[in-house]
Every structure is written in structure tokens, then in C-alpha cells.
Design a protein around this nucleic acid. Structure first.
Lengths: 204, 204, 204, 204
DNA sequence: GATGAATGAGGCTTCATTCAT
DNA sequence: TATGAATGAAGCCTCATTCAT
């Protein structure tokens, strides 16, 4: 069981990062929750940031797999987008509090004393940028197809539309989590977002 | 020159928080950038967190003032929303990296050893929740009016629409900042977002 | 060499606390005197206060052991008390400057931000109250026995007598230390205190 | 009203020092409790230690006045000592928590950066040592007189007896305050201490 | 591979003291 | 005299990281 321990650590890390955020999470808590010694973490991950980003990456991979699976299932771009929206809502609900902590500082600056801006950016590109681009690619692909087939407005940039859809979903979910007293209707949100977005990109 | 020093500190704090994030920002740097002694900060702010939230609050106030001003200027909800979108883009571009650091942990849990969950939540409500609600209120008000006057779809929840619009804008701007290599077109974004959103909420 | 480091720290801490008092003692000095890093202290002690009280507790344990040993050695309560007085003088001379810093504030209030009045009092009871009660118990036991056997005045509360004896000794020693210019005769003190106390509790 | 403000400050300081101890007491709290500005304190006292010792000195003066008054009132040394014991109990009950904080460090080392070991010791001698010597002098005077008149044991050093009496009283009161759960009988204590002490110094 | 004791840099915060008004 | 805003030194404590076993 090679990777077994690695996943154990990732599971624990994800849970702690989600609840405390990156900086308030401690490797002590992660290690104890994972049932391994603190030092063991360093056998599988370069440092705390690497652990965090690996956590995020894993979630992105799952998301991408699910979205990819969806792509083939529907012929109609509208239905594909509708299905993907549901997937994105599910993702946001379980991962937004984790993903949220990917701030520009963490992505752009290597942890001090680690010598290697180059290597750092390389890792970030692999674990974060590429997956995000893939997700955007899948969604914008649907939009493009809708445009090609007709029915979708041609003056909308598919990539921007994709970003807009993802952002709406994340925003709605995050506000629900962060300020519950706003009274956002969890059950209705996906339907509303779909209506808004689809109506937005479709002609007349 | 009474509150002068308070603003000096807020200015410096905002700059540092924006660049380093909450946890990596140090009061040392803020103090020296503000040209005051470290202790002076504590004459005006209870806490590092208080300082941070005050920084955010100030920005929110400015945003609200600008949005309020806009509300009266346009008779047509469409034009009002269009104008507000521009304001929100401007806000996001200059404040998103700051606002981003308001994570649930910071909003929901009082800093350890500060005795006072109640007082903490009271402050958060005042400095964060209320302004956010105001912004959403202004925007959803425009949507409601559009619905009342006719022309806007009646099946869209105005509050959710507001959240969606804000989130789109924040998301587009943040991705531009966080992953410039995505190649989001800064100049075109507002126009595209407006098209998407307005087409989304208006009847066929 | 397990607890070795703990004792090393306790030794250094006791020395520094004795010389500087609780508040003027710094963990920096204690750590460097113990030859360990500052962080290491926190592997063995929860707190500065915990470290201090542990220091005191250790001394109390030694004192109690010695007093217990004495209890069996003498049959005559008078001789037992005489012997214990010598032990108490020795204890006071080497520990009074340490013990002195157990002020009510430290015993009654948990350090701010440590969440746990209950836990704090529990620790204090274990490390401080119980040992003190034991010491008083041993001494008052001797007095009680003297009363039972006859020869000791029956109208004296044994527990109060014990407290009085301990206090006399501590007071004499402390004044000698604190105000040497008073010219208290170190060599004569034990003899005098014994005479005073024994004559005080014995009949006619 | 010259000294009016000085006494106001002393009153506030005493209260705060008694409750928090020397180091945990803050000049901020003292000033606000006294109704004066923080800076004002420095018009009347050299520094925090000076303020503290002045507080103690004032109490000593009152004690000495009361003891002096007693000296003349009784002809019989036994009765004089008995009366003084009552006075000392009253003093201990109201001032022990204050006086307790006069630790050797504070008395022997000038506050750092104050340049002046000589001046410091001079002040300490005036405010602390001399009063203590006076108190001891009054009490030991009674003992000496008892010895001169006959009835008191001649082998007891009057000064040590005085110290012993004071210490007993302080010890009993302090333990009552510090560890109430010991169950020391407040009402009975003075009677018991008198019995113990007087029996101790009087001839068989 | 796995451990966890040890490290030590660095952060937030407090507070006695000063000084311009 | 009186004020109180400003200072800045100094302390406790945390925690990512290392390394000998």
C-alpha cells in the first residue's frame, strides 16, 4: 500500500485546511488527524504549501473527471451546461472553503528560504493553473459549440462566459457559507443560476 | 489633524494586506509604512483583525457611497445596472485582493484569547455584514424595479441576481489578477459581463 | 535520559525565578541557562505559570518527603517538631525566595487567553494547595499527638499552630534575606523559634 | 488642596496593586481609577516602583501611629501585646495583599535604566526598612519590658519574638486569603495566636 | 520508510515612560 | 500643573521544519 499514507494525509489536511484556512491550520493537527508523525508528512510533500496545493489539485482532478464524463453524455450544449452547473455547485459546496485560500501571494511567491521561484511557479502551474484552465476549457467548449450550432449569442467570449458561470456559483455558495443570515435559498440557487446564465448566453 | 493618524495607518495597512494577505502582513511593516510606532496602531485599533476589517469597511463605505450616488442618477434600471457594473469593476480591481482575505474563519471566530464571541460577531456584523447587505440591497433594488416596470424576468430572485453579478465581476477580476496567463481581456470584460447579465435577466 | 530535559529546565527555571521573581524572569534566560531552545520548554510545560508552579511543586514534594521521613523517626512529639523545624528552616532558606512569588492573583486567575478557569484551578490545587495541606497536616498531626498524649495545651487549634510555626520560620528567614541590616541572628533563629513555639503550645 | 491629588492617586494605586499585584497592575488602570491623566502620576511619583512603595509606606505610617498610640495606653506588657496583636491582624487583613509584593528584587535592585543604585537604596530604606524597623522596635520594646519587669522568659531575643509574632499573623491571614479552602477560622485566629505567643514568651 | 523531540525565528501585543501642548 | 497621544523595547508563545534514531 504505497500511496495509502499519502491519501490519509491529504484527507486530514483537506479537512483541517477547510476548517481553519491555510495559515491557522497546523501540521500538528493534520498529522494527528491523519494518524501519522509530523515528520512523515515531509516524506510525501515538500512543505506546507505543497501539501495545501496538492489537496486542491486532487479536488480539481475529481472535478475535471466528472465534467469530462458529462461532456459526452449530452448532445445539447444547453443540457450539458445545465448538468455541469449542478456538478459545479456540488464542487463549490464541498470545496469552496478549501479553494478559497489559494490567494495570489501563495501562488506567486515561493515560501521564503526555499530558493526557487522557477520551481515554485512550475509546481503551481501544474497543480493549479492547468486544472483551472481545463475546467474553463470544458465549459467554454460547450459555449463555443452552442455558438457554432446556433442559438447562442455570438458576441459573448466563451472563456469569459465560463469564468462568469464558475464565479457566480462560487459566489453564491460562498456567501451562503460566509453570511448565512443573508438568507440565500440553497435549494433554488442552481435553478436560478442556470436560468440567469442560459438566458444570458442565448439569443433573444 | 485628529483622525489623520488613523487614516495614515489604514492606508498603510490596506497596502500591506493587499500585497501580503492577512497572515503574512506584519504590524511591523504596517507601522513603518505608516510612519508610526507599532504601539500607536493599538491606540486606534483593537487588534490586527480589527485593523484589517476596518480597512475593508472603509472600502465598502466608499463603494456604497458611489453606488448610492448612481441610484439617483439613472431612471432606467438597465442603465443603472450598467453604471453600477462599472463601479463594481473599479472596486474589484482595486480592492479584490484585500477583500479576498475575509475568510469564514476570520469572520466567525474571535481571535483566541480575546474573550468575547458576542462582541466579535457584533463588530463583524457592523463592519462587514451590514455593508455587504447594503451593496446587495442596492443592486437587487434595481432588479426589482426592472421587474416592477416590466422588461425584467419575474422568475429571477433579485437578491440572487445581485449576488451573481457581484460574483461574476469579482471572479473575472480575480482570475485576471491571479492567473494573468489565462489571457482574460481586461478592456472587454465589463462589456461582456453587462451583456451576459442584462440579457440574462431581461425577458426574451 | 527521558525526563532529563524536564529537570534541566526546572533547575534553570528555579534559579531564575528565585533571583528575579516570576514576572522579571524571562523564558529566554531560563532556556539559555538550561541549555535548550525556548520552544523546548513548551514541550514540557504548558505555560510560564505552569513552569513556575511546577518548580514550586517539586520543592514541596522534597519537603514533604523529608517531613514524612522525620515523622517516623521520633517518638516524642516535641522532638519531632524540633526536627521538623530544622527541616523547615532549611527549606525556607533555599526556597522562600521562590515560594514567595505564589501570590493570590497567580493562584486564582488563569492567565488571560488560556480559556479554562476550571482547568487552571485544578492544576493549582494539585500542584500547590494539596502539598501545602500535606505539610500542614504533618505538622498539625504532631501537635494533635502531643495533645492526645498530654503535655500540649488543649486549647490550641493544631492546624493553626502548624500554620503559625511555618509562618514564623518563613518570616524570620525572609526578613533576614530581605533586610539583612536588621541583624537577625541566623544561627540562633532556629533555637529561638523552637523555644518560642514549644513553650507556646506546651502546658505551664 | 496640594496633596489632594497625590492621595487620590495613592488610593487608586493601593486598590489596584492589592488586587493585581505589582506587575499586573497598570498605570493606565490606576490613573483612570484615580481620575487623573497618566502623566500626572509622574508629577507626584518617580516611577511605578516609587508609587508602589509610597503606597506601602503610607500604610506603614498608619500602622505605626496606631501601635504608638497603644504603647502608652497599657501599662501591662501582656495587655499591650494583646492589643497590638489585634491591630496587626487588622493591618494584615487590609494590607497583606499589598505588602506581599515587596519582594527582594524590588527592594534590592533599582529599576533598569534608572541609573542610581545608591539613590534607590536610600529611598527603600526610608520608605520600607525604617518603618519595618519601627514596628519591630515597638513590639520588641514590649517584650523587653516584660523581661525587665519579670514574667517574660529571658532567653528569648525580643527582636526575634517581634518578627515571629508579626510573621505568624501575616501567615495566618495570608493563608486564609490565598487558600480559603483550608478552613482557617477567622474569628478565632487572633485569640489563638495571642495564646500561643504569650504562652511562648512567658515563663512556665 | 517512520518517528517525534528539538529547534529558533518571528509575530502580536502590552505598558511604563516621555513630552509637546 | 495637567494632559494623553505617542513611543518602542521587550516578552510570551507558536509552529514549520529538521534530523538522529
Amino acid at each position: 500500500m504505497q500511496g495509502g499514507k499519502r491519501d490519509l494525509i491529504l484527507d486530514a489536511a483537506e479537512k483541517v485546511f477547510r476548517e481553519k484556512g491555510f495559515h491557522l491550520a497546523t501540521l500538528d493537527e493534520i498529522a494527528s488527524k491523519a494518524g501519522v508523525a509530523k515528520g512523515t508528512i515531509y516524506l510525501y510533500f515538500k512543505d506546507k504549501l505543497d501539501l495545501f496545493l496538492s489537496t486542491v489539485e486532487r479536488r480539481f482532478r475529481e472535478l475535471i473527471d466528472e465534467l469530462e464524463g458529462m461532456k459526452g453524455r449530452f448532445d445539447d450544449p444547453v443540457e450539458a451546461i445545465s448538468g455541469m452547473t449542478d456538478v459545479l455547485f456540488k464542487f463549490a459546496r464541498s470545496a469552496e472553503r478549501l479553494v478559497r485560500h489559494m490567494t495570489p501571494e501563495k501562488l506567486r511567491k515561493p515560501p521564503p528560504g526555499k530558493l526557487g521561484v522557477k520551481a515554485h511557479m512550475e509546481m503551481v502551474r501544474e497543480k493549479v493553473f492547468k486544472p483551472i484552465e481545463e475546467v474553463i476549457g470544458i465549459l467554454s467548449g460547450c459555449v463555443s459549440e452552442g455558438q457554432a450550432r446556433g442559438g447562442f449569442r455570438a458576441d459573448i467570449d466563451p472563456k469569459l462566459a465560463a469564468v462568469a458561470l464558475i464565479s457566480m456559483i462560487r459566489g453564491v455558495v460562498f456567501l451562503k457559507i460566509g453570511i448565512p443570515e443573508l438568507g440565500i435559498d440553497t435549494a433554488e440557487s442552481p435553478k436560478q443560476v442556470k436560468a440567469l446564465f442560459l438566458n444570458g448566453i442565448m439569443e433573444g
